[in-house]
Design a protein around this nucleic acid. Sequence first.
DNA 1: CTCGTTGCAAAGGATTTGCACAAGT
DNA 2: ACTTGTGCAAATCCTTTGCAACGAG
Lengths: 161, 161
Amino acid sequence: MGHEGQRIGGAVGEAAAPLAERLRERGLRLTPQRRRVLAAVAALEHATPEAIGARLREEAGAEGSAPDASTVYRNLELLEQLGLVWHTHLGKGAPVYHASEHPHPHVVCASCGEITSVAPDLLDDAAERLAADLGFTVDVGHVALSGTCRACRERAGSEIP
Amino acid sequence: MGHEGQRIGGAVGEAAAPLAERLRERGLRLTPQRRRVLAAVAALEHATPEAIGARLREEAGAEGSAPDASTVYRNLELLEQLGLVWHTHLGKGAPVYHASEHPHPHVVCASCGEITSVAPDLLDDAAERLAADLGFTVDVGHVALSGTCRACRERAGSEIP
DNA sequence: CTCGTTGCAAAGGATTTGCACAAGT
DNA sequence: ACTTGTGCAAATCCTTTGCAACGAG
């Protein structure tokens, strides 16, 4: 499962500062676990809670201790409330988290699972139509469009010529 | 949690005929369970596997026996392969199935959970852009856009004036 | 110091899987 | 008859929760 996708924003370093600030605003504490979870989400670009946990374990190595799974879940939820990460539900039971300055939609290949970030304005037209017709406001950051990526389509094409 | 939404196609009766036909094409069997599961999906418009199971139990009453949960899951998967139902992942671990003649996208209110079917061409522009830019083919039937419905937005507005 | 946080362990809920029996064709 | 499909029960997987100890402010 590859993971390229266009980078649209959200470098690792940028997220660290807002974290301390937003936590303070709410009287919450800046713990090393929170730093690490946010860093992992940012570094992995698109990751499930499990993958984030694995990454943290990896970073910690054999000696150091990685945050517990429950801590990862709790902090992902918190970080999302703070507006520092977003999550989307894709296939089966795999929510995907990603850190970014600006919300943007994603496309997911149903065949290989590759996730790609796309331009924030992709859905502007659709969003306008929905607002006009139904009074529905689309939350662009949570949108994931499923379909088939170029690589998988070409592969399928060559297998059944 | 209300459930209206525009009806775009897919009456209960229409789906029954294709079922027998498509099963036969593949040398599979038409069982009462398969009929019932398909009927329940069509009747509920938008339902989780659990809700479908509940509905079947309800229909069966105290005496009759409803299909087992595992049978529901197996058949939902089968029906999807046959192209008779579609599923989308919305909030948490809640896949939603719906039967329809023609695939179309959905919008889901993150606040009240209401699911609404929308016009099939809503995403045509976006799909074209993705095809041109990334070679990505969107599967419109699996798309769910999350956001806030009119009712919830108005409610939120009046609570925090 | 004081209260938010973490780790651990155990509970939960939703799907899935193995198998022997039941049932379409 | 021949296979596919079903029900049941057990096994998984992912996530959540209760609680005592820990540590940030």
